[in-house]
């Protein structure tokens, strides 16, 4: 039995840490309360399913911006193409991934330019 002891400890350490990680991420860990608040606000005025346009202003995620975008295009999420170059935006994408169902069946990409910035259109479904 002792010859298997280490590998049992090794496996148990990985499994228990992974379970603890799941708990930590679900219950203890929150990047940004403000983001969560905005996402909650988002859920309150959009249908439970569908696609959202979500305009990000790179580092500022104010509710008026979200609302204004819903007036224009209420069914899609918009993320700037250069999103990853802004750490805050990256955090928001993290939050989005956690809070929305990634719907690969509807995955399409359009890139276009408007007067402000270049965007990618990504379809998501809120859960």
């Amino acid at each position: 039995m002792t010859k298997y002891l280490f590998i049992i400890v090794f496996g148990a350490a990985i499994l228990l840490t992974a379970i603890a990680d799941e708990y930590k991420m679900r219950h203890l860990f929150n990047y940004n309360d403000e983001l969560t608040m905005h996402l909650d606000a988002l859920k309150s005025f959009v249908p439970a399913s569908g696609i959202l346009y979500y305009r990000l202003n790179n580092t500022k995620f104010s509710e008026p911006i979200i609302r204004s975008r819903f007036v224009l295009a209420p069914r899609c999420i918009l993320i700037p193409e250069n999103a990853g170059q802004h750490y805050d935006t990256l955090l928001l994408i993290n939050e989005l991934q956690d809070r929305i169902e990634f719907d690969s069946t509807q995955k399409t990409i359009w890139s276009y330019r408007d007067t402000l910035a270049q965007y990618s259109l990504i379809n998501f479904k809120i859960i």
Partner: peptide, 28 residues
Amino acid sequence: NLLLTMGVILMSTFCLFLARKNGDWDAV
């Protein structure tokens, strides 16, 4: 054996503290 076992347990604990939601930039 003791060093190895303790090392693995301690590393797991460090890793749990360092873990971030959805990983990092490239992971996301």
